[in-house]
Nucleic acid binder design. Structure first.
Lengths: 228, 228
DNA sequence: CGCCGGTGAGTAGCATGCTACATGCTATGG
DNA sequence: CCATAGCATGTAGCATGCTACTCACCGGCG
């Protein structure tokens, strides 16, 4: 089972600042998040290396990094297994995001200037553009950018990096299911509330809106994963 | 007819035996934390591999993992540089520890039973044993165990893992400096306050004691690093 | 004297070779 | 027919080979 070929990493352009290990890490991470590499499945380093068009070394190094992030687990002489994300895992992830992102949103609001507000508004518009027709993949990419913008604005780079890692545990479903469009609209509205509070210069309201958003998202995802 | 069970040679049937990469990661991490590998210095994979008595592969893999943790940075064709921990880094680390450990301590207190209280008390006694004569290295190891015990008791494994990673950014100084013994005593007393609140079954007091402890430690370390 | 270009040693990054082990299949013996 | 030994195949883990690059050093030239 070789599966569909992943995008080759090699580019003919000679200037490569990034290493192949970096590229392999990004490629495998996104393949796992959007399900092209399936949770629960075993993959061999050699086969993935073939699919990516590189040698085994950068692929193994990438998988070791993803293992540390909790996305895969090596099984000796068997392969690397993509780990499933249980409802309990999602609960842990969102407990952490609440602890980190709510205070970070408040701090970002305290520091916010007009330039940040404009950036956030632009991000919100980009999200809205993915509602009709509903494109979950593009929407979630914008959602990630929105959150990262606010997190970086809070001034703690490590916090932003930790949240980015946590997000990778939420898998995207492939085809939109029934009612998915309405879900996206609801998520979008929660972001609107955050931006309105930010525009009003009200850090406590920003924090509250972020808390509401994360709690609702947690409910949604935990339920979709079968509940606790 | 199976007879009496023999001791299984394999731990879990399918789990991971420790690899050389794992051991190299632990060895290098602790060498960096206690200063045997010096911050700011460049080290080559080949030389480290010689010192550890293994080939370059597990050493490179270990350094890649430590790079992801923010402890080293590869410089192409030059080596791996041990990153310094600035006062600003420490401020970020403790901002995160406050966001995570204070609520975690409260949750641990809510869940605490007699067994946990006894474990924590034993850990506290182990810390006290390192006060006279003062042994900073052993004391800090116990301190780490104390915090990890509480974090795990809070029921969020990822939270505990994140805090463990953050702690590695605090370097131990080698020989005790003047007044170091008194510092250890003060740190110990802050842990006593946490345990007393825990014994009293008062989650809010546990959280407050943890906050005090972390804020004082932050002040101490940020000042020692030259201030913000 | 100062600048500059060559050059050789050392390096990360990547590819590949090698070994022990896990597992499925098959042939063999009951 | 069924159980099982052993063989073929595939794998992670580790070692090693190879290449392009960095940089310190040195000698010659302005």
């Amino acid at each position: 089972m070789s599966g569909p070929p992943l995008d080759p990493l090699r580019e003919d352009g000679r200037e490569r600042r990034e290493t192949l290990t970096d590229r392999a890490t990004d490629a495998l991470r996104s393949a796992i998040v959007d399900g092209r590499l399936r949770a629960g499945e075993l993959y061999s380093v050699a086969r993935l290396a073939d699919r990516l068009g590189v040698s085994r070394t950068p692929v193994r190094e990438a998988l070791l990094l993803l293992e540390r992030q909790g996305m895969v687990r090596f099984e000796r002489n068997r392969g690397a297994r993509v780990l499933e994300t249980s409802a309990r895992d999602l609960d842990e992830v969102f407990a952490l995001r609440l602890l980190l992102e709510v205070p970070a949103a408040k701090e970002a609001a305290r520091r916010a200037d007009d330039a940040l507000v404009r950036e956030v508004e632009a991000m919100l518009a980009a999200m809205e553009a993915q509602l009709d027709p509903p494109d979950e993949h593009a929407f979630m990419a914008r959602d990630r950018d929105f959150h990262q913008l606010l997190l970086r604005a809070a001034g703690n780079a490590r916090l932003a990096a930790i949240v980015a890692d946590l997000r990778d545990h939420v898998r995207l479903r492939g085809a939109s299911t029934v009612g998915r469009g309405r879900d996206l609209r609801a998520i979008y509205d929660e972001h609107v509330a955050i931006v309105e509070a930010l525009r009003a210069g009200d850090p406590a309201a920003v924090a509250a809106a972020m808390r509401t958003h994360l709690e609702r998202t947690r409910e949604l995802l935990v339920a979709a994963a079968g509940g606790l």
